[in-house]
Simulated assay, not measured.
Amino acid sequence: MSHRPRFLLVAGAWVAAVTGALVAVPLVLRDRLPEPLATHWGLSGEPNGAMSFWTALLTQVGTWALIAAVASFSLLRRDAVLHRARRRAAGALLGGGGGFVAALQGMTLAANLDRPGWHAAGRLDWQVLLAVGAAVAGGALGWLAASPGPDEPYAREPVEQPRMRLRPGQRVVWMSSASNPGAVALGVAGLVGALVLALSSLTVGVGGLRFTAGSLAVIGVIGLAVSTVRVRVSDQGVVISFGPFRWPSRKLALRSIQSARAEERHPLQVGGWGLRGLPGSATIMVRGGECLVVRYPSGGELGITVDDAAHGAALLNALIAERSDAA
């Protein structure tokens, strides 16, 4: 059996196994569950919302079906399984999504088990972290499980390396950036929510507010950190900065770069958003589209999603050539 049908068989078996567990476990425990079930908990940890047994079951299975459909969409192309980045993205999504949904269902059933009614369901506070942990662990295992096998490069048309003409002694600087409005909105919403809850915790005696505020603050900071990337090209090299405060940053010296070019790259092609790939073959993916791709003498590449990448590549190639001539 070739790698493609084997990978699809394993992925299909995982989807079927998770679906079977999501359906079978509640049915086995149905006689020990109240009707309706507690399905929502407030910031205090007490249940404050309920659904009928079948509505809750269909919601959980439907959520898993949506996750599986998104993962399958990334593998629509017949040769997609042959690219390690796409396999890893699909594997991480299936593993993490399955772990998250299963953990949520498990906590819901445990909180409702043998209770006289949904108002008497157990509290959920720190237990929510178990769902997050299951998602992270499942995603990591899915990523690792999808790693073995072929990794065929994407077919790309030969690209002529652009080069800008510089007058003797001329110093030129090129700067550009790209941002992801969704990540910006997530970061701002997280920080605003954290501030509101932190202030509320000073006057309202509700348990869990400070913990939730801290969680939202972490989400906000991470969202803003990955929302924007800025690139500066000069005779000092390439400086890549992240976030609205341009921190953290990374500098690439001219001597460590062989050439540069502009290229179209998209999240599904490289495995998602953020820093994708491995050292030597990575992409800083803030938004799909135009990228500045720098190539190292070792053959490795780093792509950065920024606007006007062609002019940045042309200047960088001119500076590299000027340095070589001087040497």
Rank of each mutant, 00 (worst) to 15 (best):
L292S: 01
W126Y: 14
L43S: 07
F242M: 12
R255A: 12
A24D: 07
W14N: 02
G220Q: 02
L22T: 04
S176H: 05
L302W: 00
A24M: 06
G237E: 00
A309D: 01
A262F: 02
A89Y: 00
W273A: 13
L129C: 03
L195Y: 00
A146M: 14
A102F: 03
V233C: 02
T55V: 06
L33I: 05
S241W: 05
S44Q: 10
H83W: 06
L275R: 06
F73L: 09
L124M: 09
L43I: 11
G95V: 10
L254E: 08
S227N: 01
A260N: 15
P279D: 11
R32Y: 06
L315H: 01
R171H: 15
R323N: 08
A145M: 02
L33T: 11
G237W: 07
W247A: 09
H40S: 10
D325F: 14
A69M: 08
L254I: 15
A189W: 04
A253Y: 03
S241L: 02
W247L: 10
G45H: 12
R88A: 02
A50I: 03
V18W: 08
A137R: 14
L124D: 03
V270S: 12
T63V: 15
A326S: 12
L58I: 04
G182L: 15
L113D: 01
F211W: 06
S2Y: 00
E301H: 04
I67E: 11
T228Y: 01
G62R: 07
A189V: 11
D125L: 08
P36L: 09
W143C: 13
E263F: 00
A89K: 02
L58N: 05
H119S: 02
G207S: 09
L144W: 09
S259F: 10
G20H: 08
R255G: 04
H83Q: 13
D308N: 07
F245R: 00
L316C: 11
M107Q: 13
G288S: 05
E160T: 05
Q269P: 09
V188D: 14
G62N: 03
P244T: 08
G205C: 03
E290M: 03
A102K: 08
G300H: 12
D307A: 04
A71H: 11
L166D: 10
V293N: 02
E290P: 02
G117Y: 09
D79G: 08
S215T: 15
G274S: 14
L319N: 04
Q127L: 08
A68H: 08
L66W: 13
G142L: 03
H3G: 04
P47I: 12
V238Q: 15
